[in-house]
Simulated assay, not measured.
Amino acid sequence: MPESWEYTLHIPHDPRAVTVCRRTLRLILALHRLTHLADTAELLTSELVSNAVLHTKGPAALRIRYREGVLQIGAWDADPQPPEPPGKFGELTDAENGRGFALVRANSDLWGWQPLSRLGRRGKLVWCELNAA
């Protein structure tokens, strides 16, 4: 039976939480012998957690899940609204800001978002997946 696991890190509404999440992710991947995914996974984690912390108010959480050879990285925040207006979601632009979802789309095998309640609060989970092979 393949190994499956999941970690959740609850983070404060603080930009410094992005660094804590990246370092935590690297440690988890090293412990599970998935270091070959670390650079890409760290970039994806930075983008997802940055959006959760910088563009919403309230608590957030990082979820790292591995199942059937797929690493899923997700950032939950307390804002139930979609991450960006539907017409701009994931478009690549020359702007200094707003390219996060384009980077997520370009560097992951699958991504999306869904409404999700956590700790009794409505919100959303923005996630992406990397195949471990």
Score class of each variant (00 low, 15 high):
V20I: 13
V20R: 10
V20L: 14
C21R: 04
C21A: 15
R22I: 11
R22A: 14
R23E: 14
R23G: 09
T24Q: 10
T24C: 11
L25G: 02
R26F: 03
R26Y: 03
R26L: 06
L27S: 13
L27V: 12
L27G: 13
L27Y: 10
L27H: 13
I28C: 03
I28P: 01
I28D: 00
I28L: 11
L29V: 03
L29D: 02
L29F: 04
L29P: 02
L29E: 04
A30Y: 07
A30F: 08
L31R: 15
L31A: 09
H32S: 03
H32W: 07
H32D: 06
H32F: 10
H32A: 11
H32E: 08
R33S: 14
R33H: 13
R33L: 05
R33K: 13
R33C: 05
L34Y: 08
L34F: 06
T35Q: 09
T35H: 02
T35F: 00
T35C: 01
T35L: 05
H36K: 05
L37T: 01
L37R: 00
A38I: 08
T40R: 13
T40G: 04
A41I: 08
A41W: 04
A41N: 03
A41Y: 04
A41C: 06
A41P: 02
E42V: 05
E42F: 01
E42S: 13
E42P: 00
L43Y: 00
L44G: 05
L44V: 09
L44E: 07
T45Y: 04
T45A: 10
T45E: 03
T45M: 06
S46G: 14
S46L: 06
S46Y: 02
E47L: 07
E47I: 11
E47A: 09
L48P: 11
L48G: 12
L48W: 13
L48F: 15
V49M: 01
V49H: 02
V49T: 01
V49G: 02
V49W: 01
S50W: 10
S50L: 07
S50T: 13
N51E: 11
N51Y: 07
N51T: 12
N51F: 12
N51V: 12
V53A: 04
V53S: 04
V53T: 07
L54W: 11
L54Q: 15
L54P: 02
H55T: 06
H55A: 06
K57R: 08
K57G: 09
G58T: 02
G58E: 06
G58A: 06
G58S: 08
P59I: 09
P59D: 15
P59L: 15
P59H: 15
A60D: 10
A60E: 08
